[in-house]
Amino acid sequence: MTEPSATPDKKKSHGWIRTAVDFGGLLAFFIGYLVTHSLVAAAWWLVAGSAVALVVGYVAEKRLAPMPLISGVLALVFGSLTVFFKDPIFLKLKPTITMTLFAVILLGGLVAKKNVLKMLMGSELVMSDAVWRTFTLRYGLFFLAIAILNEIVWRNFDEGVWATFKVFGILGLTVLFSLSQAPLIMRGMKESEAPVDPEEATAAPPIIE
């Protein structure tokens, strides 16, 4: 008799770890900004929070998923540039560059007939290829839209507004968009004749800040 690959308790604990990896740097940045009221000073918190989150995620799971890893590394890079040059422009550009990078990866993959999102999430969601293409296209366009929106906000509003948008705006829009994809996911799982799990039906790529 084979052992189950993961018990519910292990899955739950891993879920908390993934959440910490996804939100560690973002939460540290927000706390830092509330304390210092300075984007440059908050960048120190972002760098430290992102580094700790990546280390904790790797130690706990012995691996890091590609998207949180790329996002975390970019947070370290742009946070460090902000601290070194004492210029918050690098921090403001980080969401634009991150979102654009993921949009290019997803949409470019579709053009090359390689579904990157399916490669990353295929073990969590069993859907038809047609639905995977639609799912990936929607996320690629969503990431591109967030990149454009970030440019509009930081160029037209003060630092406090942008910091709030970075933490709550991008996060809120991502959660709402992910929830809106549940009907598509359920349809794709039914087409593939896979059992529909309500938790899987709301699955989405990691939060990318």
Score class of each variant (00 low, 15 high):
F78Q: 02
F78V: 02
F78I: 05
F78K: 00
G79K: 00
S80A: 15
S80F: 04
L81I: 09
L81D: 06
L81R: 10
T82D: 01
T82V: 01
V83N: 03
F84S: 12
F84R: 11
F85K: 13
F85R: 14
F85H: 14
K86T: 14
K86L: 13
D87Q: 02
D87H: 08
P88Q: 10
P88E: 06
I89C: 11
I89P: 07
F90A: 03
F90H: 05
F90I: 02
F90M: 06
F90V: 03
L91Q: 04
L91G: 02
L91P: 00
K92N: 07
K92R: 13
K94M: 15
K94P: 06
K94N: 15
K94I: 12
T96A: 14
I97Q: 08
I97M: 10
I97V: 15
T98E: 07
T98W: 05
M99Y: 14
M99R: 11
M99A: 12
T100K: 11
T100M: 14
T100S: 15
L101S: 10
L101F: 14
L101V: 13
F102R: 00
A103L: 04
V104R: 06
V104C: 11
V104F: 09
I105C: 08
I105R: 04
I105S: 02
L106M: 08
L106N: 02
L107T: 04
G108W: 08
G109Q: 00
G109R: 03
L110E: 01
L110A: 05
V111F: 14
V111P: 09
V111D: 08
V111G: 10
V111A: 13
A112V: 09
A112P: 06
A112K: 14
K114Y: 08
K114E: 12
N115M: 03
V116Q: 02
L117Q: 06
L117T: 03
L117D: 03
K118G: 05
K118R: 15
K118L: 12
